[in-house]
Design a protein around this nucleic acid. Sequence first.
DNA 1: ATGCCTTGTCGCACAAGA
Length: 260
Amino acid sequence: MKIATWNINGVKARLETTLTWLKETAPDVACLQEIKSMDEKFPSGPFEDLGYNVITHGQKGFNGVAILSKTPLENVTRRLPGDEEDEQARYIESTISTPTGAVRVACLYLPNGNPIDTPKFPYKLAWMQRLEARVRELLADEMPLVVAGDYNVIPMPEDARRPEAWTGDALFQPESRTAYRRLLNLGLTDAIRATEPAPETYTFWDYQAGAWQKNDGIRIDHMLLSPQAADRLAHAGIDKETRGWEKPSDHVPVWIELAA
DNA sequence: ATGCCTTGTCGCACAAGA
């Protein structure tokens, strides 16, 4: 079973690119972030034509997440619990039934948090605290769990080509990194870190200043696995080549393969 | 120090991203 995650930076701008990638890599489940679309405007048809069921949690203009799955999506939860006032569409969860059992998949777009001297940074940290609480609940269910998405956290200096350029940035603040580590310490496995050699393994390259050409990247898109899921982790990878395509997203897909 | 690009928006510049 192949599960992937990709911040596509706009489903309207990236529709053809996303369809091409789905045809080439054929994930069973795809978590998408930054769809930048309201639910009623999301172009589900072309994805359904490829055999996917589609659930979305969108809003106008910004943010927005979606899950595509070749098998039915059950027990859908939209919004991250813990703050009724939070109107930003950044989280969707569903149970995916497969012949070899059910998997709970959470698709998230964690707040960026910049600039750090504005309310955006405490919002990010509060969101991460809510995520930790939610993951605790899900782990208690003991169903295989995959928490995938754009975390907007550079976990370690080796996850950036130029870590010194990110000091003072919300993605690399000690508080952000600690909150990410707290998630891992619940017993989650970072799939890429568990399977890939560390050097120059990135998932995001800025559009500006020739970051892609210089490989000036960061690793901020992650797939975290519960013990029941990690026991089945067979492969993990990054579809880096998509960053070199025409009209690319600034993020690239990350994927895992779970053994039956 | 800032912009460098890119997307979406009731565009004719701006916010937000990371």
